[in-house]
Computed example of a mutant assay.
Amino acid sequence: MVVRAVGRWWRKTGTCGRRRRGRLVLALAVSGLLAVLSGLGSWRPGVAVLVIGPVLACARLDARRTAAVAASALSLALGAGAASGLKVTPGLGIEFLVLLVGSTLAVRDAARHTADAAALARATDVAQASQNAILRPMSVEFGGIEVCARHRCAVQGASVCGDLYDVVHTPYGVRLLIGDVRGHDLDALRTTAATISAFRDLAYLTPGLADLATALDARLAPELGPEDFVTAVFAEFAPGEVRLVNCGHPAPLRAGKQVMLLEPLEPTPPLGLHPRPLPYRCYLQSGDRLLFYTDGLSEARDANGTDFPLLERVGDALAVLSPSDALDTLYAMVAAHTGHAPADDIALALCQPTSMVVPSPAARPSNPAACREP
């Protein structure tokens, strides 16, 4: 009867993964081995030692499976006692009591950590839903600028990723923010939400782009811990040019007649470390596209540790007509380079003017490819 019951229970667990099934086999095998040893007259510890099986099970299995292992251990203990011809004595009664109490505590502990895991799973679902609401993919056009943006959270087991982006149409022009929050936990989600919310408020109220970065740093200061920071690039589109402020973030890239990084004039620390950034601007020509990204793109490495050749490959990807298809192509190139799905978060924002208004000759830089101070 016991064998049939164990067989029925085993068949019910046939849908478990290999790892869970291996743990079940291990717990049952330990219980069986200890039962055999307990049936030997020379085995001193007695049947109480069979509690090891349920204890092993409760460490990794849920309450139902732990209870099955505990029932099996109790049944095996009775069988081992009968096989060894043990007489019912106070000592034997104490051993069975120890086994029974230990099995009960193991089942209770399994139920507790199963409930904790379920609560964590629910919290993770809420965090992911919140992140998707904050960082929704976008394909919009306003102020003569088409923006296509998306993110991929690639850290295995992470509930949220640390990348962020947003774009708003303000009295000072179309403004874009892309950044990277340190960490991948719920604190990172809170900081992401605070950063985007503050950007949306301040972008409409702050005329200067560098002043916007400074004001955002001051707004985030109470939210950040001593080791927290947010790398960020701010962009503001004007007729025939883009104005930029970079706070410790990978430089955006312009693809057109040539591909080049739009690097800041001087390095500036991230938000949270009290940056004093210098704004700079770059001239845009007809057909130019601007790619804003996080370091999950530029630091994607292959099996040999070689970074993704961004400057060499991005021109081909961004030559695709549709901005959405261009980002898909770029991500596929990264996956092909690494040999698997990228192991870090990647946020991408592709911007292109839909109607090019060229500034007057006096406002043009002598070298159109160069970036300069305003």
Rank of each mutant, 00 (worst) to 15 (best):
G7R: 05
R8F: 14
W10A: 14
W10S: 09
V25F: 11
L28T: 06
L34M: 14
S38H: 02
W43P: 02
R44G: 15
L56Y: 02
L56T: 04
R60D: 10
L61R: 00
A63H: 09
R64E: 06
A67T: 04
A67D: 03
A68K: 00
A68Y: 09
A70I: 13
S72C: 14
A73N: 06
A73Y: 04
L74D: 07
S75F: 14
S75V: 14
A77K: 02
A77S: 05
G85M: 08
K87G: 14
T89G: 04
G93I: 09
G93N: 06
G93M: 12
L97E: 01
L97R: 05
L97W: 07
T104R: 07
R112I: 10
R112G: 01
H113V: 08
H113N: 02
H113F: 02
A119I: 06
A123V: 00
S139F: 05
E146G: 08
Q156G: 13
S159M: 09
G162D: 05
L164W: 04
D166V: 03
L189Y: 13
T191C: 08
T195I: 07
L202A: 08
G208R: 11
T214V: 09
T214S: 03
A215M: 13
A215W: 03
L216W: 07
L216M: 13
P222C: 09
E223A: 08
F229I: 05
V233G: 08
V233W: 07
E241K: 15
N246E: 08
P250N: 03
G256E: 03
P277T: 01
P279R: 06
Y280R: 04
D288G: 12
L291E: 00
Y293V: 03
T294I: 06
D302W: 10
A303C: 12
L310S: 00
R313E: 04
D316K: 00
L318F: 03
S322C: 14
D325M: 12
D328W: 02
T329P: 00
M333Y: 01
A336P: 01
A343V: 07
D344F: 03
A347L: 11
S360T: 15
R364T: 13
R364Y: 09
N367Y: 13
N367M: 13
